[in-house]
Design a protein around this nucleic acid. Structure first.
Lengths: 188, 188
DNA sequence: CCGAAGAGTGAGTGTTCAACCACACATACC
DNA sequence: GGTATGTGTGGTTGAACACTCACTCTTCGG
């Protein structure tokens, strides 16, 4: 019985990369508890068993996904700062806000953060990852914008509002309450 | 064989009430997907089978819990409005904010909202419940305070920030980033 | 004191889960 | 071409899941 096509192997590192990338979408859809490792495997095109060769357990996998998302967020903000080079705090924060609005055209990023926040309560490894993520991002925003405490805080408060809007799909609702929540929230 | 003590029966309505009250804490701890109906039953002091006599399924139970939480939030805001009777929009909103800060001394309320938001993505019944909840609350805040679009929006943005702070326990972290997020966020 | 209606449960159902292991196959180096 | 190393999977396991059913016990009206 001849092979129809020789199997092409990847390196474990490349596979991990694939899994991480596709698992963002998988976990985004149903969250940490609601997503099965079988779904993650299917999305990545490997067997469920191999997921456990690449990651020690489900929690580690999810934590890696969360960290990956924070990296993407930071990358997006850095790009915005580079573009709005040397402006005032207001200008830089506005540029960052706009860049973030563009970034979350990909809803998965918001959903992962939301699910991570929810899971953070009972899963300490997740909580630690989210804390590290915000520690990094908050300090970056502060350093790059030079904004004061209240400006920085307001920046993140608006970010959280974006997450609410996305999670319940408020931008798809045609009603005054929904318009109030979404007004001036840029969404592409 | 004599009974050591005659069993005391409740009405189904009273039991449902008990389950609803205790289930807030149960779902708060591990979320919609992470909480089992067995845990809910244990917390309420009934058999798991009887949970299904009182509620048609797990989703309906969770939706009922979410609705209950929104009722509590609204009740809290109404109380604040009654106390700050007839003030300007700023004053009324500040009173509401303070009342909410007091309310979420009970972290469970925040956690339910967070978990509901996360579950809203994949469970449409949950999404509808959250939408109804915000529809009600946003319109109430608007009507009671007379604030403009931006004031109302900002009120909710700060509320969302509170949720982040609570979920990752930022108030327990001694670091600049955590202080930036929590500054001026009243917490009792 | 009988009988109907409701409160409440023990013991399951089939399914699905995370995690594991023994093994097959591909590659690389000598 | 042999062997060591790494890639990848099928099959399984024990536990846990949501949900069901047959059944018992309480209450209460007549």
């Amino acid at each position: 019985m001849t092979n129809e096509r020789a199997r092409q192997l990847s390196t474990a590192e490349a596979r991990r990369e694939t899994v991480l990338r596709t698992a963002i979408g998988t976990f985004a859809a149903r969250g940490y508890f609601g997503t099965t490792t079988t779904e993650v495997a299917k999305e990545a095109g490997i067997s469920q068993a191999y997921v456990y060769r690449l990651f020690p357990n489900k929690e580690s996998l999810f934590v890696a996904v969360v960290e990956r998302c924070f990296v993407q967020v930071r990358g997006c903000l850095e790009q915005a700062v580079a573009d709005a080079d040397g402006g005032s705090a207001d200008v830089v924060l506005a540029a960052m806000g706009d860049a973030y609005a563009k970034l979350i055209t990909d809803r998965d990023l918001v959903l992962i953060q939301l699910h991570a926040q929810a899971a953070a309560v009972s899963e300490s490894a997740v909580r630690d990852a989210v804390r590290r993520g915000y520690a990094h991002v908050v300090e970056y925003v502060r350093g790059a914008s030079g904004g004061d405490e209240h400006e920085i805080q307001n920046f993140f408060a608006r970010g959280m509002l974006c997450h609410l809007v996305v999670s319940i799909g408020a931008d798809e609702v045609d009603a005054p309450w929904a318009r109030t929540l979404t007004v001036d929230i840029t969404h592409y």
